[in-house]
Simulated scan of single mutants.
Amino acid sequence: MMHLPGRLRSVPLSRQELALIAITTVWGGTFLAVHIAMRHSGPMFFVGLRFLVAGLLACVLFRRVLRGMTWADAGAGAAIGVMIFLGYGLQTFGLQTVSSSTSAFLTALYVPMVPFLQWAVFRKRPGAMMFAGAALAFVGLVLLAGPSAVRVGVGPGEIATLVSTVPIAGEIILISVFAGRVNLGRVTVVQLLTCSVLGFIAVPVVREGIPAFSWVWVATAAGLGAASCVIQATMNWAQKFVTPTRATIIYTGEPVWAGIFGRIAGDRLPGVAIAGAVLIVASVLVSEIRPRPRPRQRTPGDSRVVDLPPRDRTQHD
């Protein structure tokens, strides 16, 4: 554990936070797979198929609890599923006319948005180090996007990508809102199938068409469907114990892993992107820092407990 002076201390990662870090690794690896699949399938059809596979797997995993489905479970799952689809759909629409680096830059705006949404929804202000971690994560994502990303226009692609940050942040907030109030398995099933249905509905709306059969998109959709099932179920479980801001900072590690997998596949990361990755890792560490509890001392002849003044405290490592 790193040494921190004064009244600051580093809090060890919980198993829920470690689980979120693990799924960002899986998440990062999906980008290369999606990039390959898009050579053989349209995005909306692929989203529909991917989340259909994920939803069916969730049905198998959580089959024992599905009989007890309530309106609260269905409503929560549908709301989260709509957010997932809108985030994917608007980003995909934007990528038709804007570069991937610009899309990454604009999408990164959801990171500073989440702490304020958490404050508004839960009436609890995130700590100063959480804000600092979110700021570092945002700067890291901007550096990962690259210098050319900041040349943003005002076309429909840029607008759609900007709007997509709202459902992306909304998904994270909604998961925390419903955590502990609904059944994990039922909500996971509903949200995955909701996203799938909306994806298939969007195919004729965007005039995409059904792709010619290819084992590439079939196998990729099956693999990514399994990954999506694990990712969403883990998010639903872990965010019962992890705040939305903290979860968001952890999720920003996803493009770092995407860059690592891309490098393995032959891509080269520029120095500024490596600096961005370092900042994102640092943001996770910074957001762990908490103020040390104030030492307390009993006064002679008094049962009350009083705080020691700062100058009388002895610092211990």
Results as ranks from 00 to 15, higher is better:
residue 148 S to R: 12
residue 256 V to C: 14
residue 209 G to L: 11
residue 256 V to F: 13
residue 174 L to P: 12
residue 150 V to E: 02
residue 173 I to T: 05
residue 230 V to R: 03
residue 154 V to D: 07
residue 181 R to W: 01
residue 266 G to H: 10
residue 167 P to C: 11
residue 189 V to S: 04
residue 222 A to D: 02
residue 235 M to C: 06
residue 207 R to W: 00
residue 141 L to I: 04
residue 166 V to I: 15
residue 189 V to H: 07
residue 178 F to P: 03
residue 252 T to M: 03
residue 246 R to A: 12
residue 203 V to P: 08
residue 247 A to T: 14
residue 142 V to S: 10
residue 192 L to K: 10
residue 209 G to S: 13
residue 205 V to C: 04
residue 150 V to I: 15
residue 193 L to H: 08
residue 134 A to W: 06
residue 241 F to W: 13
residue 147 P to V: 09
residue 194 T to P: 07
residue 207 R to E: 13
residue 137 A to H: 07
residue 133 G to T: 03
residue 249 I to T: 08
residue 187 V to I: 02
residue 149 A to K: 04
residue 163 V to T: 12
residue 247 A to M: 12
residue 239 Q to E: 13
residue 132 A to S: 14
residue 256 V to M: 14
residue 141 L to E: 02
residue 158 E to N: 09
residue 183 N to V: 13
residue 266 G to V: 10
residue 263 R to M: 14
residue 179 A to G: 14
residue 176 S to W: 03
residue 141 L to G: 00
residue 183 N to F: 05
residue 231 I to T: 09
residue 150 V to H: 06
residue 212 A to L: 12
residue 187 V to A: 10
residue 215 W to R: 02
residue 218 V to E: 01
residue 151 R to A: 14
residue 150 V to Y: 09
residue 230 V to D: 02
residue 233 A to D: 05
residue 136 L to Q: 05
residue 157 G to D: 08
residue 135 A to V: 04
residue 178 F to A: 10
residue 210 I to S: 08
residue 197 V to R: 00
residue 188 T to L: 05
residue 207 R to P: 00
residue 209 G to V: 11
residue 196 S to V: 06
residue 243 T to P: 05
residue 260 I to K: 06
residue 206 V to I: 13
residue 167 P to Y: 12
residue 137 A to C: 07
residue 181 R to E: 12
residue 267 D to K: 13
residue 170 G to D: 07
residue 146 G to S: 06
residue 228 S to K: 07
residue 172 I to G: 09
residue 160 A to P: 03
residue 193 L to W: 04
residue 161 T to E: 08
residue 229 C to F: 12
residue 247 A to L: 08
residue 226 A to C: 14
residue 134 A to E: 05
residue 158 E to H: 06
residue 179 A to V: 07
residue 156 P to D: 09
residue 151 R to I: 04
residue 267 D to E: 15
residue 241 F to H: 15
residue 227 A to R: 04
residue 156 P to C: 07
residue 234 T to G: 10
residue 261 F to T: 07
residue 195 C to T: 15
residue 134 A to C: 11
residue 207 R to D: 10
residue 138 F to Q: 00
residue 153 G to C: 12
residue 246 R to P: 04
residue 235 M to W: 00
residue 228 S to R: 03
residue 227 A to C: 15
residue 239 Q to R: 13
residue 232 Q to R: 05
residue 188 T to F: 07
residue 218 V to L: 15
residue 194 T to K: 04
residue 165 T to R: 03
residue 131 F to C: 05
residue 198 L to Q: 00
residue 131 F to R: 07
residue 157 G to M: 08
residue 265 A to M: 05
residue 180 G to C: 09
residue 203 V to E: 13
residue 221 A to P: 02
residue 172 I to H: 06
residue 131 F to H: 10
residue 219 A to T: 13
residue 149 A to M: 04
residue 214 S to H: 08
residue 130 M to G: 15
residue 221 A to W: 01
residue 175 I to H: 12
residue 163 V to E: 07
residue 197 V to K: 00
residue 180 G to W: 11
residue 168 I to H: 04
residue 161 T to Q: 08
residue 164 S to M: 15
residue 186 R to C: 11
residue 181 R to L: 09
residue 247 A to Q: 06
residue 267 D to I: 04
residue 194 T to Q: 06
residue 248 T to F: 03
residue 229 C to K: 01
residue 208 E to V: 05
residue 133 G to L: 04
residue 215 W to H: 09
residue 214 S to P: 11
residue 245 T to C: 10
residue 222 A to H: 01
residue 163 V to D: 08
residue 220 T to I: 15
residue 259 G to E: 02
residue 236 N to L: 13
residue 214 S to C: 09
residue 193 L to E: 11
